[in-house]
Amino acid sequence: TGEEYIAVGDFTAQQVGDLTFKKGEILLVIEKKPDGWWIAKDAKGNEGLVPRTYLEPYS
């Protein structure tokens, strides 16, 4: 389980392990790392690192 967040901007993977997403996408945050990069999963089940500055809590 995780917390749902909504993307407030588009993000394109910079390196292997990053997750590309579009503004408005709902992501499930699995782990919040202290460096500001969180592990998240998208609706298709893809998992990767995302920058927390692009996310806001979804309710």
Rank of each mutant, 00 (worst) to 15 (best):
D35I: 04
F11C: 03
Y5L: 02
G24P: 01
G45I: 01
F21L: 05
W37E: 05
V29G: 01
I39T: 09
D42G: 03
E31D: 13
W37Y: 11
E4T: 14
G48N: 01
K23C: 05
D42S: 08
N46Q: 10
E47F: 14
W38N: 01
D10Q: 05
P57A: 12
W38P: 00
D42H: 03
Q14W: 08
G17F: 07
S59I: 15
K32I: 07
V29I: 15
A40H: 00
D18P: 04
S59R: 10
T1D: 13
E3P: 08
Y5N: 02
N46V: 12
A40C: 05
E25I: 03
R52A: 15
E56P: 01
S59G: 11
D10F: 04
D10Y: 05
Y5I: 01
K41N: 06
Q15E: 12
D42C: 02
Q15D: 15
E4K: 15
K22F: 13
K22M: 09
I39V: 12
L49G: 08
K44H: 13
E3Y: 07
K44E: 13
I39H: 08
I30S: 07
I26T: 06
G48R: 01
L49D: 04
D10H: 07
A40S: 03
P51K: 09
G2L: 15
F11T: 02
I6M: 13
D35T: 08
K44T: 14
W37M: 12
Y54E: 09
V16W: 15
V16M: 08
T1L: 13
D35W: 05
E3Q: 13
S59W: 09
A7K: 00
A43H: 13
Q15I: 08
T1I: 12
V50D: 00
G48M: 02
L28H: 11
G17S: 09
F21H: 01
I26P: 03
N46G: 09
E4R: 07
E31G: 09
G24W: 06
F21A: 03
E47A: 11
K22E: 07
L49Y: 07
E4M: 14
E3L: 06
E31N: 10
V29A: 02
I26V: 13
D35Y: 06
T12Q: 10
F21V: 10
W38G: 01
L55T: 01
F11A: 02
K23T: 10
V16R: 13
E56T: 08
A13D: 03
V29C: 03
G24M: 03
P34C: 07
K44Y: 08
I26Q: 03
K32N: 03
G17R: 06
L49T: 15
G9C: 05
G45Q: 06
E56R: 13
L27V: 07
G9F: 15
T12Y: 11
T53E: 15
K32C: 03
Y58M: 10
A40M: 13
T20H: 07
L27G: 00
E31K: 12
G36C: 05
G24R: 03
L28S: 08
W37N: 07
L49W: 08
V29D: 00
P34W: 12
A40I: 04
W38V: 03
P51L: 15
K44S: 13
A7Y: 02
F21K: 00
G2D: 12
N46F: 14
T12D: 13
A43D: 15
G2C: 05
P57W: 07
E3H: 10
D10I: 02
G9Q: 15
D18L: 15
G45P: 00
L19Y: 01
G9M: 14
E25P: 00
R52E: 12
W37K: 10
V50T: 03
P51S: 14
G17H: 07
K33R: 10
I6W: 06
A13C: 05
E47P: 05
L27F: 07
K44I: 11
G17D: 05
L27D: 00
K32T: 06
Q14E: 10
I26W: 07
V29K: 01
A13I: 03
D35Q: 05
V50I: 06
D42N: 09
P34R: 08
A40N: 00
L49M: 08
A43L: 09
Q15T: 15
N46E: 12
V8R: 10
R52W: 14
A7Q: 01
G24L: 03
A40G: 05
K32H: 06
W37G: 05
I26S: 03
D42F: 01
E31A: 11
G17A: 06
A7V: 03
Y54Q: 09
I6C: 04
V50M: 01
G36R: 03
P34Q: 13
V8G: 04
E31P: 01
G9H: 15
I39K: 10
K44N: 13
R52L: 12
I39N: 09
G2H: 14
P51I: 06
G48F: 03
L49F: 08
T12E: 12
Y5K: 01
E25G: 04
K22I: 13
I6N: 02
I39D: 02
E47D: 06
A40R: 00
T12L: 09
G36Y: 06
K32F: 09
